[in-house]
Design a protein around this nucleic acid. Structure first.
Length: 351
DNA sequence: AACCCGGGGCT
DNA sequence: AGCCCAGGGTT
């Protein structure tokens, strides 16, 4: 690694100095266990610390080691992840744990390039684990780092572009010191999360304001540049809550749509169906409508109930098998991983 | 390069 | 309502 320029050293020294006076106390700090660090980093992807914390405690207590996670059934892992979102993270987490336990003899990969091969581990997460756990000099570039560097150095490249990813990672790797690289990575992220915040940062309190491009040019509001082109899709979902005695009809969601691997009910999109294949009876519409907002979809959901008489249990069972549905006893529902929308519905139903 | 994948909190 | 959050995978 080449020697850092004095300007770069001044930047990193001020960031570290600020951090030492203003550290966040977080449960995964102070450990060098790559498993715990990996766990925290996956949980925190696109997730605020405050939202991820309870999940970190739950996972690190339920699965203290990579072996414990590897030996758990995926259904249990997804259930523990319930409510956190981006569920592919949980599936990849579990898949990696099995890979590390069964294929790598339980030895966690210990370099940036080996970590990068793990499912769900990209350049940010590989840099975080390799620097925090193994002291490798690899700079993290997350949303905080994009913002801090764009403002301080006056970079107006669209941070959503692939070009920016390369540009900012190259710059970040010139700034990171060879001594205590993990501490520097923690420092710049805390600095972005607590001082150089997206809206209305308290620049007068900033130790870097004298040499900050954006502050000196009055461009703090304009940096970083992010061109957002995600279009939100509106969807109308109609769910059928089919019960036969104590048994409910459930569906495990497949790939190609939201909530893969989670459980909801048989449903149609668009207009509710007047009758279902299993009964001549008309489903009874529940008046309450549910609006559920995702980052890329707005869901309008309604629910209808249908009670199947006990005599038809055999026929219902056959129907579920043909349609790929599951019959689940009411007291087992709590163990299914479900999207928040469905949890909200069940709560309203007193389940 | 463009698109997809959750849920929550702040402005 | 829009933006952002210790991003990554797929096409």
């Amino acid at each position: 690694m080449s020697r850092k320029s004095s300007e770069n050293q001044a930047f990193s020294l001020k960031i570290i100095s600020w951090y030492k006076a203003n550290p966040r106390e977080l449960p995964w700090r102070g450990t060098t266990d790559p498993y715990k660090i990996w766990l925290s980093e996956i949980i925190l992807q696109q997730t605020r610390v405050a939202q991820g914390l309870p999940y970190y405690y739950a996972f690190s207590e339920t699965y203290p080691t990579v072996k414990d996670l590897a030996l758990a059934p995926e259904s249990e892992v997804l259930r523990l992840w319930q409510g956190l979102g981006y569920y592919s993270r949980a599936r990849n987490l579990h898949s990696c744990a099995k890979f590390i336990w069964y294929e790598l003899g339980g030895i966690f990969p210990n370099t940036y390039s080996e970590l990068l091969k793990l499912k769900g581990v990209g350049s940010y997460t590989a840099a975080a684990i390799s620097s925090f756990a193994f002291g490798e000099v690899k700079a993290v570039v997350d949303g905080n780092v994009f913002r801090v560097l764009a403002r301080y150095f006056g970079i107006d490249t669209d941070i959503a572009s692939g070009k920016a990813k390369i540009e900012f990672e190259t710059l970040a790797n010139k700034l990171i010191p060879n001594e205590n690289p993990g501490e520097y990575n923690q420092a710049i992220m805390d600095f972005g999360a607590r001082l150089c915040v997206p809206k209305n940062p308290d620049c007068p309190k900033c130790p870097l304001k004298e040499t900050c491009f954006a502050y000196q040019k009055n461009l703090v509001k304009d940096l970083p540049v992010k061109i957002n082109k995600t279009k939100v899709k509106e969807r109308n979902l109609h769910y059928y809550v089919i019960r036969c005695g104590e048994n409910w009809v459930w569906k495990k969601r497949k790939s190609g749509d939201i909530w893969e691997g989670l459980h909801d009910f048989p449903h149609s999109e668009g207009e509710p169906a007047p009758y279902l294949g299993i009964s001549e009876e008309k489903p009874r519409l529940i008046p309450k409508k549910y609006r559920h907002i995702l980052s890329h979809q707005r869901l309008n959901a309604s629910f209808s109930e249908l009670e199947i008489p006990l005599e038809k249990h055999q026929e219902l069972s056959k129907w579920c098998e043909n349609e790929g549905y599951l019959l689940v006893a009411e007291n087992e529902i709590e163990y299914l991983a479900k999207p928040k929308l469905i949890v909200n519905f069940l709560t309203d139903q007193g389940i």
